[in-house]
Design a protein around this nucleic acid. Sequence first.
DNA 1: GTAGCAAAACGAACTAGTTCGTTTGGTAGA
DNA 2: TCTACCAAACGAACTAGTTCGTTTTGCTAC
Lengths: 205, 205
Amino acid sequence: MNTDESTSGLPSKEPEPTRQRILEAARVEFAAHGLAGARIDRIARNASASKERLYAYYRHKAELFSAVLELNLIEFASAVQQNAGESLPEFAGALYDHAVAHPEYLRMIDWANLEGQEVINPPVNLINEFHAERLRGVIALQAAGSVDPSWDPDHLNALVFGIVSCWIHEPASALAAGRKPDADALAARRASVVRAVERLVAPGA
Amino acid sequence: MNTDESTSGLPSKEPEPTRQRILEAARVEFAAHGLAGARIDRIARNASASKERLYAYYRHKAELFSAVLELNLIEFASAVQQNAGESLPEFAGALYDHAVAHPEYLRMIDWANLEGQEVINPPVNLINEFHAERLRGVIALQAAGSVDPSWDPDHLNALVFGIVSCWIHEPASALAAGRKPDADALAARRASVVRAVERLVAPGA
DNA sequence: GTAGCAAAACGAACTAGTTCGTTTGGTAGA
DNA sequence: TCTACCAAACGAACTAGTTCGTTTTGCTAC
């Protein structure tokens, strides 16, 4: 995980490992508890750092939250774009796999969505940029003929996202199911996601 | 709002209007701020009630939250079942309209999903009951031939929910768009929701 | 009508615990 | 010495939940 640059002759000052640890601990904390529920002491403790250091690097709790959100969005967008070349159904499948393997990303987005409008200023430029990138991808697939061109690319993008994350938000699976689904169930869900998107994009209906 | 029963000869004691006001204020507060972000004092003040009364009716903050959640789920399920007779695409459209008109319900579900697993015990029986009811509806439509029977009803139910609520959770529209979409945009989205579900359920593909 | 009563409600103060953000004193390495 | 760091403590504000004396309200009986 650590691409150590100290092996190279470059004098790149080791990028503040304490700050990194704080950010990493904050990531876990905020994803689990949100902004209001997160505890600064817990973040510092889990980072094996002192609060003095935490506030040396970040002014507010909200600033730390914003940093985590931005980092998550960048990583999430990068993971998304990794599969942007695929067909849209397989892209959705890959996104589903990512959501299953790393639920923190979608949790952070949900937290920001629910708590955000009050305190935090989300990195709007970043978001819009990635969104535009996504739209270009959809439009390209439409031009190539594998996606029905009658869809509004913006709508289609949102629909695919909704399909991919539907089990995270659907009340019965989200609230009632304490036991999480096993591997077979997850594979079946993935297949349904892919199939659903296949039907969406199929040209000529 | 007050169906005054005191006019009838029935001795039905007026059902605690203060408790009702507290519950209503709590509904607004929790939907806006969640469990951790909600403030008891604010609830009491907005209910024009005293904290003494609040704690006379509800033991904890969490108990009040649970009461709000249960009430919301009941009302939401009732609204859902109101349109259960429709075709699945139109059902999705009606659900979309409901989500646009009353975003509080989906917000509460999201709050419960994010904050819930720690403190709150969601009304699992209730949720499972409504879920089963939904599944029966889907199965009936499949038997009637208007919905492709090869879908797992459980999956299809979740997919429709994800499609309906996709704009609430999609990062770009949820976080970046401060300005909310106008009536035209909402109508276009609704049309896309209906069309998406149409394509999902179309038998023979 | 009014006296009496009990439940419901008010409101203001209070407790006890929590939490953010700051400060202080001290250690270790460059 | 300077910088990064830690552990601990601290202050101030906030917050859930409690207590208590007072007031209002609905009801019953006289």
